[in-house]
Design a protein around this nucleic acid. Structure first.
Ligand SMILES: NC(=O)c1ccc[n+]([C@@H]2O[C@H](COP(=O)([O-])OP(=O)(O)OC[C@H]3O[C@@H](n4cnc5c(N)ncnc54)[C@H](O)[C@@H]3O)[C@@H](O)[C@H]2O)c1
Ligand SMILES: NC(=O)c1ccc[n+]([C@@H]2O[C@H](COP(=O)([O-])OP(=O)(O)OC[C@H]3O[C@@H](n4cnc5c(N)ncnc54)[C@H](O)[C@@H]3O)[C@@H](O)[C@H]2O)c1
Lengths: 219, 219
DNA sequence: TACCGCTTGTGCACCGGCGCACAAGCGCAT
DNA sequence: ATGCGCTTGTGCGCCGGTGCACAAGCGGTA
């Protein structure tokens, strides 16, 4: 890759993309930074600076070509090709994720489901049969799986992360409320709902505004 | 009062708390910033600076009292009192959230469930009967609900957010992939899983991790 | 052609966060 | 009492992110 895109910008690109998809569906062909900023809920100057990292795609006095911009952002995020995903841990959360169509439609088809419980293995969820965690490496290899989603209890999360890395998964998204250690080469992001609530708790009792700090986290 | 705690610190307090709970369960009475930093996956100096915003609770040459620190963090986050939560939208995700015990055990009991579909209203999930969205205001009032979780489709999210605010909810956590506008006084946090995957996609496709930049990774 | 209105691209100054590094301070051993 | 080892609390320089403000540049118009 040629260009270095700042972390903060990368975190916003999916938001711009979502806004552009919406715009495109209304038939709009061009969009100004101000209009896009409004849709994405950010500052117009930030939109322009963010987009400038992708290249000089705007036209002064006119704006940006919606479809073209959509393709450029897609390319930057690597959405030009589908990225197969495996979900590990088919409990409450895993089941909900498996049923959700929003991943496939955004280029991240769920191609395999894995669990450690014999009670779950063999069960069919949303057309996919749950496999045993011991077969993870073979499954990842077979489907060329690039992303692993961890939806197991916190105690099992590190072991699952290790297994995913060993199996050749390239990046990981974890829902387990625990600290995970993975090699530098494996991007890791985590979503901890209880933590989010506790953060809200602080601001709520302080009765202060602030909505920031959502799009940060590690690379 | 009114000690000002930086956003970045507030976001880490729940992590420290989790680590301390774990430590306490092992019988440890004191902990050094280095040990806590290791558990929380952050820098030791950062731990000390973060904790210093709460007060001067450490003892030089010794460390921090685990139980005392736990209580201080709990107080700062407002966890000394329970914060009742309502979930709006009982589809895939809403059901999973309702079944999850991790919220109640962390001071955020789910006391009400709401949906707009007549097919869902009346159904009992985890001991709670699903109510109609039209009754939201009464329900929020009755249970003194402070937090609303939005788990509806994106199209309905803004309307639901407005209804929650009107009903008197004090802060909102949204899972809908859309930009929401709420009054400054209502803290809002968003969790967008598809966005997380797209961010991972960017870092994943850039093969060379390079040498600069990427610190962290674990947390 | 010359001009005008509009929008981009970016220089710049500011701010919050980060982490190194060190003095201050505590407890224990002698 | 004195000294030593360990850990806290924080000053300080650095860096990435933010948004204002403006020059550059495009399309349309007369
Ligand atoms: N359910 C939610 O709404 C929710 C909300 C926030 C966080 N979480 C977190 O998400 C994770 C999953 O939550 P849940 O409610 O689905 O839990 P769950 O107990 O319903 O499901 C966990 C699943 O993981 C499987 N599992 C356990 N060890 C495994 C291993 N080593 N390899 C593969 N699979 C294994 C279990 O068999 C089970 O099916 C937890 O860490 C939880 O804290 C869940
Ligand atoms: N399921 C997942 O794993 C998942 C993952 C990522 C994001 N999300 C997001 O979470 C949200 C919910 O996802 P889901 O899979 O549960 O969807 P779903 O369609 O299964 O459930 C949505 C529920 O919301 C209810 N609803 C619709 N409009 C409403 C209104 N105005 N007031 C109250 N209730 C209303 C519907 O009756 C339905 O029960 C969506 O925005 C989705 O994009 C879900």
């Amino acid at each position: 890759m040629a260009r270095e895109i700042p972390d903060a910008t990368v975190a916003r690109l999916p938001i711009y993309r979502r806004s552009l998809v919406e715009l495109a569906s209304t038939g709009a062909e061009m969009v100004s930074s101000a209009a896009l900023a409004d849709l994405a809920g950010v500052n117009a100057a930030k939109v322009r600076k963010d987009l400038s990292y992708l290249g000089t795609y705007g036209v002064r006095g006119v704006g940006y070509d919606v479809k073209f911009l959509l393709r450029q952002i897609g390319d930057a995020l690597g959405l030009d090709i589908e990225t197969p995903v495996v979900i590990v841990g088919m409990g409450n959360l895993g089941q909900a994720l498996a049923h959700y169509g929003g991943f496939s439609s955004r280029g991240f088809p769920i191609v395999a489901l894995v669990d450690a419980s014999d009670a779950k293995v063999g069960e069919v969820v949303d057309g996919i049969t749950i496999s045993h965690i011991d077969d993870l490496a073979a499954i990842v290899d077979e489907h060329a799986i690039a992303v692993g989603i961890i939806a197991t209890p916190a105690e099992a999360a590190q072991a699952v992360a290790d297994a995913l890395v060993a199996a050749g998964v390239r990046s990981i998204l974890s829902f387990a409320p625990s600290v995970l250690h993975v090699p530098e080469t494996v991007p890791l992001r985590k979503v901890d709902l209880a933590t989010e609530l506790q953060i809200l708790g602080y601001y709520q009792q302080r009765e202060s505004p602030a909505e920031g700090g959502n799009t940060d986290k590690s690379a």
